[in-house]
Design a binder for these strands. Structure first.
Length: 486
RNA sequence: GGUCUCAUCGUCUAACGGUUAGGACGCCAGGUUUUCAUCCUGGUAAUCGGAGUUCGAUUCUCCGUGAGAUCACCA
């Protein structure tokens, strides 16, 4: 397999779109699978939509997800952005001189022309076209300008842009997920490739950069299909070989429209903030539009890398099934080691996770949540002795006297054992279950009052887990308090 | 509206042209259980419609229908 060079090319608008993550993942899988390079390029040619700090944010988010790129901007130890890779600069605003050369080439080849039309004129032109049910396209007014007229306007410094001169005919390209796509050139507008502010538009910049950076596969969202002919035409005009195009299915809102901000979270950062783990997010998002095996649901990133196959990418859009994400996240939460859990939980709980009791509580409750941000309220009754009504100590099949007797029995049992007899949940369970059996008692009579005394709640984790988490002293305190309430 | 793309359970998806159309999430029921959660077992639920090709179509072709994307000096 020849090494693939793939890239994501986000515009710096402040957050990482969940669709960008999916695209990044597929690019990453493909590059790594073939021993190639995965590249990040910053497409900041829209000066009006630039958001301060968004490149840093992008890089930090990607790093947090564990998706490291081989070329492009990176943040060094001092927090400064530098670039790695031999095809830089990887930020389009630093490549303006490059685009200028290629624009000039197109103009001299007769493939592009200057346009002096005002935005106002273009707007009214479009309105008229729509009114007469024509499809909105530039009317080529400026193409009819003579060479002298163009030079004259240029020399006066009149505002101008450069447009691509779309030739007659039709453009056909092979899409790796959809097959042959054919579009008549009459459908394609004379796209602006160089704006009045001197910046290129996406269409020119993406083609030039992808060629210069030796990109072999362009994986991007389906919304780009209709502008792909412009890119194919540009490759042809420059005499370059076009890379493989693969248009990925869209990520959808529940109403099947393109995933949008108003209908839910689209920013990866938002998912992270709510306590979804990178592994879960990656697993979930990767499965939106691609399925390696059919019956397996849980994959490590290495497996995806090994099994990724462009020809198996789906064609139709995918609605996000949030319940499944929750299920997956819970799975990965449960798989975390004590130390790993401590670190991922740290930003989500106000209590100090370095404290044994706090961490114990989290260890237990992580099995009952699907997101880290649910932890805080779950661990409350571990950290603080709860106030409660003594009536809840009484099991439905027993009375106050029995509850009190059982608690006293438990008190005695626990007082009589060494601390390290309570060091594992299994040990504690065995200890208590043996006691129950030896004394001819029933689980309910003993465990219900025990658990409610320990938790102060009708619903909680098991008494064994609670004793383990709280420790001997705190457990005894709570049992004594229970007894006093009866 | 033009053009392009797409179409299997509610959702994500699987199925060399031959399967009782499979799995997962969710939901429902039962079981385990001191409660909650987990766990186990079972169940619910789909090939958009119509032609054609074929011995045989979820799968190939065409026509409908529906949905989406796109039509900027935004990406």
């Amino acid at each position: 397999m020849t090494p693939a060079r793939t890239r994501i090319a986000p515009s710096p608008t402040g957050y990482v779109h969940i669709g960008t993550l999916r695209t990044a993942l597929y690019n990453y899988f493909l590059a790594k699978q073939t021993g190639g390079k995965y590249i990040i390029r910053i497409e900041d040619t829209d000066r009006e939509r630039l958001v301060e700090g968004s490149v840093e944010n992008l890089l930090e988010t990607m790093k947090f997800l564990g998706l490291e790129h081989d070329e492009g901007p990176v943040i060094d130890k001092d927090g400064v952005i530098e670039e790695i890779g031999e095809y830089g600069p990887y930020t389009q605003s630093a490549r303006l001189h490059i685009y200028a050369d290629y624009v000039n080439q197109l103009i001299s080849q007769g493939n592009a022309y200057h346009c002096f039309c005002s935005k106002e004129r273009l707007t009214t032109m479009r309105e008229e076209q729509q009114a007469t049910k024509q499809s909105p396209k530039y009317d080529r007014t400026c193409l009819r300008l003579s060479e002298n007229e163009v030079q004259a306007k240029l020399s006066t410094g009149e505002n101008s842009v450069v447009r691509l001169k779309i030739p007659e005919g039709e453009t056909i390209f092979e899409d790796a997920v959809r097959g042959l796509i054919k579009i008549n050139n009459s459908e394609v507008d004379d796209q602006v490739i160089l704006k009045a502010d001197g910046f290129p538009t996406y269409h020119l910049a993406v083609v030039v950069d992808d060629h210069l950076m030796k990109i072999t596969h362009i994986l991007r969202g389906e919304e780009w299909i209709s502008s792909t002919p412009k890119h194919v035409l540009l490759y042809k005009m420059f005499g370059w070989e076009a890379p493989v195009f693969a248009h990925l299915p869209l990520l959808l809102n529940p109403d099947k429209s393109k995933l949008s901000k108003r209908q839910g979270d689209v920013a990866v950062e938002d998912y992270l903030k709510r306590g979804y783990l990178p592994k879960a997010l990656i697993n979930f998002v990767s499965l939106l539009g691609f399925n390696p095996k059919g019956d397996q649901e849980l994959y490590e990133i290495e497996e995806f890398t090994e099994l990724f196959d462009l020809s198996k990418v789906n064609k139709s859009g995918a609605v996000l099934n949030m319940e499944k994400l929750d299920w997956m996240n819970n799975h990965y939460l449960k798989a975390l080691s004590r130390d790993e859990l401590k670190e991922v939980a740290r930003p989500f709980v106000q209590a100090n996770v370095d404290n044994e009791l706090v961490l114990n509580a989290i260890m237990i409750e992580r099995e009952r949540v699907s997101r880290l941000d649910e932890l805080q309220e779950k661990i409350g009754y571990y950290l603080e002795e709860p106030a409660y009504d003594g009536a809840i100590l009484i099991w439905k099949k027993a009375d106050a006297g029995d509850a009190k007797a059982q608690l006293e029995g438990m008190l005695k049992l626990l007082q009589g054992v060494e601390d390290d007899a309570l060091s594992s949940i299994e040990q504690i369970e065995t200890l208590i279950k043996n006691y129950i059996e030896a004394n001819g008692l029933s689980n309910g009579n003993v465990l219900w009052p025990l658990r409610t005394a320990l938790s102060g709640r009708e619903k909680s984790s098991s008494p064994f887990e609670l004793i383990w988490a709280l420790g001997k002293t705190q457990s005894l305190n709570r049992i004594e308090k229970g007894i006093s309430l009866l």
